[in-house]
């Protein structure tokens, strides 16, 4: 989780990602950030997130991102 949080904070340093259950609806991440986030997660976890998995639901909170990474073969 620490690594995911640090990636999220590198994209949006001013936000607190630990208190939100829905980053998109709460406005912590916008559509520009999602593309950066996919690239950063791919690179940092040496995976390639399946294009079919790139939807807002899979990035809505820390648990969703963790599940997405595991599904795409990341070792957490």
């Amino acid at each position: 989780m620490e690594k995911i949080l640090s990636i999220l904070n590198s994209i949006r340093p001013e936000e607190d990602f630990t208190t939100s259950e829905d980053f998109i609806s709460d406005g912590l991440l916008d559509s520009f950030d999602l593309i950066s986030l996919v690239s950063e997660l791919d690179e940092n976890f040496s995976i390639s997130i399946d294009g079919m998995d790139i939807n807002q639901e899979n990035f809505k909170n820390l648990d969703a991102i963790k599940s997405l990474l595991i599904k795409n073969g990341a070792k957490l």
Partner: peptide
Amino acid sequence: IEKIKKLNTRFVTNFFLNE
């Protein structure tokens, strides 16, 4: 997106994902 990612893992885009 999946088609492009299968070719090269990474991708570049200006199409931002606001569902």
